[in-house]
Design a protein around this nucleic acid. Sequence first.
DNA 1: AATGAATGAGGATTCATTCAT
DNA 2: TATGAATGAATCCTCATTCAT
Lengths: 191, 191, 191, 191
Amino acid sequence: MSPRTPQQLEQIRKERRKAITDTALEVFAEHGYESASISKIAKKAGVSKGLMYNYFESKEDLLTSIMMEGMGEMLQMFDTDKDGILTREEFTCFIEDIFSLMSAKRSFYKLYFALIMQPSVWKLFESKLPGMIEPIIKTMVDYYRKKGVKDPVLEAALVGALLDGVGFHYVYKADLYPLEEMKKIIIERFV
Amino acid sequence: MSPRTPQQLEQIRKERRKAITDTALEVFAEHGYESASISKIAKKAGVSKGLMYNYFESKEDLLTSIMMEGMGEMLQMFDTDKDGILTREEFTCFIEDIFSLMSAKRSFYKLYFALIMQPSVWKLFESKLPGMIEPIIKTMVDYYRKKGVKDPVLEAALVGALLDGVGFHYVYKADLYPLEEMKKIIIERFV
Amino acid sequence: MSPRTPQQLEQIRKERRKAITDTALEVFAEHGYESASISKIAKKAGVSKGLMYNYFESKEDLLTSIMMEGMGEMLQMFDTDKDGILTREEFTCFIEDIFSLMSAKRSFYKLYFALIMQPSVWKLFESKLPGMIEPIIKTMVDYYRKKGVKDPVLEAALVGALLDGVGFHYVYKADLYPLEEMKKIIIERFV
Amino acid sequence: MSPRTPQQLEQIRKERRKAITDTALEVFAEHGYESASISKIAKKAGVSKGLMYNYFESKEDLLTSIMMEGMGEMLQMFDTDKDGILTREEFTCFIEDIFSLMSAKRSFYKLYFALIMQPSVWKLFESKLPGMIEPIIKTMVDYYRKKGVKDPVLEAALVGALLDGVGFHYVYKADLYPLEEMKKIIIERFV
DNA sequence: AATGAATGAGGATTCATTCAT
DNA sequence: TATGAATGAATCCTCATTCAT
């Protein structure tokens, strides 16, 4: 009879949108951006092709939306106030956060790696990615500086490379990767 | 105008094939596997579309051929006999080899990263890659075992991740990356 | 908050309908029939897509309604009784009416031209159009016959072609067209 | 065995291209630009959809190619040298040329009208048309200026509108139109 | 061995229309 | 009466692959 209330509509849109982005993330990560067809995503999300364009302007928009939101979520995890002194415990916590993230958001990580390597797609993000990574790097540099390490920037770069390498291997070796042991040894050696 | 000798024909075939693979490598890396069209590659290689199928069965065959040959070349660099005891000096040498490879074949390296990260491409190789990488891993595990490290497999995995991470960063940060310092610190800490 | 009276409802319906047809005319004329989407029209008319179908059965129905009504309006302008003798002043008036119409209803003219030229659309109107044009032709033939012109039918055809040509150019040359001067010279020469 | 000679290829391309443009002209004119689908044209031309894009970059390119070529042909008819003084006889000739064109190329003329009236099509040509029509306008303006007419530009616009109007009516009234008489009266009055 | 015309399946996208509310 | 989410057919276009020459 009467049209839905704005609240109802908002609710519907939110749910549908999430269904689409969740599915798209999976499919993008599984097949790559180019191979993932809107058709496949729509079908897997239980939605018509046409509806996809009710929520996202284009395939590219769908991709960038997912990436931006995923990156936003990741950044929030490191958003706790780290202006003061960084204790040993806090840094341990920080490393553990990164590892939690790796397993919690493995699909996203995979997509991130897959996309970052595709020059055509890279262009969409190269301006935004540094902003995401910088605070993480800074945290580490600060920690090592305070700890009195000789070359804190190099040390942070080393740990950064190590973490990316672990992430990369983990993402591709799937369930066989000794993530927990790796975490322990990294905390042991680099905290 | 006598017909070409079989040797000449063989020579021509070899050259044409190389022209195609070289061009394809570039185009695949620049546009990604899916976006790179046979047409573009053929035109850039100065060859007709039809001829491509005289040298390669399909687009996928073209890709796998390129990857296999490229990886074969890389592995040859580590083919020196390392069956005996691995001394500290030899391991240092080994690490240095890897870093040499990174800078000597950097563009090459970049192309391989770009391709291997695409899930559609990865699927074609994930069964073959372990066999190719294994000797490298094995070299490291052996070294750490002999050195008396507590968990040599984990240690090798750690260094493996670190090296991949460094390669990854180096390939993308281009000329700004402190590759030499990184090499020094890795040898210092992990040899 | 008593419910609206039937009169009020009727009034609201009328206004809404007019809002839709007015907007649709603009959009059809601007983008052409095929390119004009119901969505665009609805949004521009401040109405929901769904409501469009409450007032018109289909896109085609919307188009034909607009055309019929527009043509009706045009005919009314020439509906003044012209049975008696047509003086020079009355004919001047008549020409001026046509020019008024051109600028007052430019959007409609544009749509009319655009559609009349599409054979598939033409079929919807070809039975009704002659009825609209005939009285205009007749008025002119009568005038020239009374004036003693040698071939009044040819003269009327000439002026008819001229008026259509001017309308055509005016509609497409937009604001740059010297409509006033054209009117003056036509009245000067052909009245 | 051996590939086709360039001459053979050229021949094939020419023929196919003509088959496509001829069919497209018909279909565009019958259904309008937007409604005419590449599929329909391809099928009617006895050609695959894909091949259309071997000959034309896009639907728009197909349309513009047809229009440009048709208009080029028309303009060639007015290519006789008209740089010197334009005598009364030459101008008569010029008008007669236009009328010849109307009947000789009536079908193209019809298509031209049908297409040019569609706003979406018009946009593609409004930048190019003036350049093509200008010489015709200029010829008329020059003639009237030399003849001492008070406002030669307006006079030319008047005749231009008249000619377009006549063309428009002729094209739609088909065989019933008194084209010859119209020509005579126009030459009588406007030369 | 070599060519490029030709095919057709499949991709992203649009949009008139329907329907639950 | 009014809404806009949802559908799916149809559109333009791309491209790996085939084939006559």
